[in-house]
Design a protein around this nucleic acid. Structure first.
Lengths: 208, 208
DNA sequence: TTGATTTAATTAAATGTTTGTTTAACTTTG
DNA sequence: CAAAGTTAAACAAACATTTAATTAAATCAA
């Protein structure tokens, strides 16, 4: 799990190219060229194109699970604070790593890329953690009963991913074409997380 | 725009394969085999693999724009009824045509497939129609002011697409593995559209 | 520290498939 | 009998991966 500079160049280049052109449309030649290494280095270090994409996923998924669990178990903060922080952290993470998250979306859609089982296993664990947190908040009387937690998670993930993956359509539709990529990213983080927090608060803590 | 049986077989096979394996991972040989036609027929009828995918998009997009406009302009129904019908019709359409919608999602993510401009143009028109409808509802006092319509549309589209494209993950997480594909589809249509209607109603017609 | 020897890193070239598209011959149809 | 439909075979280009040769780095006894 420890990579040298050349391996990191390959991982970064692959993530970028897989994200914008897709796994199958990206040749190992393209990756080697983008990373400025010889073609054979990819087989030498990672074995194959398939194993390369697996390495990318394993690295990121592990880190996210850790962040999430620590955040929701932080009992120093109120349930509402922790929920807001969940939304904001998730949105920030997706908007901040568009390349990786586009890869992830594509891998879930595609049935033939080997990492699908890995992703499902991770989804399940993440869902359990969030469900446990919200149930705890319900028992302590902060959150409403009768919440469809799975649907809420799907709204969080679906909305955020959709806005991220079509952000340039969004930019044009909002007349924000004067913004730089970084400015757009900041804008999307604040607007998306505020929108979602409002939406969820309406069913989480207000009466029906 | 009028296709014979052989052309329809090709279109259907291509839609299915592009959806599950992606554009680049699907060879014209695969399509020819799935459609049970000779390889050369694809070039003969559609010119190229690129023009084949364009034909698929043009056919579907035109039909959806027509349905939507007619529905929202039907002044015999109340604003709330028309809004509910918008949500329900959209969800039904996405869940009912997973192949095509997976293709659409992928095309938006991928920058190199030629249909991206076509999709953006369509998105813009659809957004204008929905915006005009909601503004009308606001002026007649049915809907709240200060709505971020673009964010709402992104939540509708993002949530629905996400649930559709990860429906088998969803099925496992909900312990619904005993359902057939058709039963699952029915379940997803009703649950997703009810969830979204509730969510939107909380910010559309209830006070802040 | 030196020099011998092994290991790891790197390369250009070659390998054998698979790709999208075309061709030229053949059959069916109006 | 010409036009449209259909086919198997052929095409060059691009593909992922391997090979064999070369260089750099590491190891270690003297």
């Amino acid at each position: 799990m420890e990579y040298n500079q050349k391996q990191l160049s390959i991982l970064e280049a692959a993530e970028k190219l897989f994200a914008s052109h897709g796994f199958h449309a990206t040749s190992v030649r393209d990756i080697a060229h983008e990373a400025d290494v010889n073609i054979a280095m990819i087989s030498y270090y990672f074995g194959s194109k398939e194993k390369l994409i697996e390495a990318i996923f394993l690295k990121r998924i592990f880190a996210w699970k850790l962040t999430l669990t620590e955040m929701l178990h932080n009992s120093a903060r109120s349930y509402v604070e922790r929920f807001d922080s969940l939304v904001e952290t998730y949105v920030t993470r997706v908007m901040g790593n568009p390349c990786f998250n586009l890869m992830m979306i594509r891998a879930q859609i595609q049935e033939d890329i080997g990492v699908n089982d890995l992703i499902h296993e991770n989804k399940k664990e993440v869902h359990e953690v969030i469900k446990a947190f919200i149930n705890e908040g319900q028992e302590s009387g902060v959150f409403n009963k009768d919440l469809d937690i799975l649907m809420m998670v799907n709204t969080l993930v679906g909305t955020t991913n959709h806005i991220m993956s079509t952000r340039h359509h969004f930019q044009r539709l909002s007349n924000l074409e004067h913004l730089s990529d970084n400015e757009l990213q900041e804008y999307l983080i604040s607007h998306t997380s505020n929108h979602l927090k409002n939406l969820f608060k309406a069913i989480l803590i207000h009466e029906a």
